[in-house]
Structures are given as structure tokens and as C-alpha cells.
């Protein structure tokens, strides 16, 4: 199949790319645009390591075609820090919200979106809201703590 032109906003910058229709968004991000922060895990839409924002909602970029990002807005983990680390990034460091770190980009991307959807979530709401992201180190306790800590910091700043 011939490659097709897509154009979309990536971390605030307008991007043009040539993609095959069958290409998944995560592959375009990693292999064409060289943004390897978004990881590939299960590739079956279970594990959530490939989570990015597409048009203001969390999606698993292994189960979205690159063609579907056309004229849209994509934010990846590379777009989180703005001069200094984003509150969720800082909180994951402070609360030791990672062990091997493989799931972390997906956790960060889901956490920052969750806190925009619900700025003051209960622990149960965090667990429900983060349920699409798996950590094979099973370090969930500190991940929850990190999201709670980031929520507090973001609310103080607001």
C-alpha cells in the first residue's frame, strides 16, 4: 500500500509524516519520529505502556492507526516536561513510583490526564482511573502514592 501523508500536532509542534495505512500510531512515534519514550509492551491494548494523549483523552497508541491522528493533537511523555519536570514526573521520583521503569511513560501519561479529569481523586478513583496500566514489578502502591502527591502539588499550584 502506498504511504499516505498525515499532519498532526505532536507535543505542540506541527508534524508531517508519511505512513502506511496499517501503521499503528506507536510505530510512527517511535520509528519515524524517533520519540522512543512511548514504549511497546503487550501490543494487544492491555498493558498501557503505549498510552499517549490523542485529542485530549488517554489512548493506547498500539491500537490506534497513525492515520487516525491526522489533523489531531498528540502528546507523548516527551511533551510533559516544560523546562522543569511535570508534577507527576517529580512525584514519581520522590515517591519511588518506579522500579524497572518500563511502564513509567504510560503511567505518567495516564496520571497527568487523570488529574486533569479529576483533580482531587480518592485512592479508589486513582486505582480505577489507572486500571488500564500494568506494572510487572507490581509497584502499584508507590505509583498510587505518587499520583496522590502530584494531585496535592497541582492543587496547590492552581
Amino acid at each position: 500500500m502506498a504511504k499516505q501523508h498525515i499532519s498532526f500536532s505532536l507535543n505542540g509542534e506541527q508534524i508531517d509524516a508519511l505512513v502506511e495505512p496499517r501503521e499503528l500510531l506507536v510505530h510512527t512515534l517511535r520509528e519515524t519520529l524517533n520519540l522512543t519514550g512511548t514504549h511497546i509492551g503487550c501490543e494487544t491494548s492491555h498493558c498501557g505502556v503505549c498510552t499517549v494523549d490523542l485529542n485530549g483523552v488517554s489512548v493506547k497508541s498500539c491500537t490506534v492507526l497513525a492515520m487516525q491522528a491526522h489533523e489531531g493533537e498528540v502528546t507523548t511523555v516527551e511533551g510533559l516536561a516544560n523546562g522543569e519536570l511535570h508534577a507527576v514526573q517529580q512525584a514519581f521520583i520522590e515517591e519511588h513510583g518506579l522500579q524497572c521503569g518500563f511502564c513509567t511513560p504510560g503511567m505518567l501519561m495516564r496520571a497527568q490526564r487523570l488529574l486533569q479529569e479529576n483533580p482531587d481523586p480518592s485512592e479508589e478513583e486513582i486505582r480505577w482511573g489507572m486500571a488500564g496500566n500494568l506494572c510487572r514489578c507490581t509497584g502499584y502502591q508507590n505509583i498510587i502514592k505518587a499520583v496522590q502527591s502530584a494531585a496535592k502539588k497541582l492543587q496547590q499550584e492552581a
Binding site: K60, T63, A131, G132
Partner: peptide
């Protein structure tokens, strides 16, 4: 149904 990301699609 599924999880938050899947429910968005």
C-alpha cells in the same frame, strides 16, 4: 467495560 483508555475509543 475494559479500562479507561479503551473506554475512550
Amino acid at each position: 467495560v475494559a479500562d479507561p483508555q479503551v473506554r475512550n475509543r
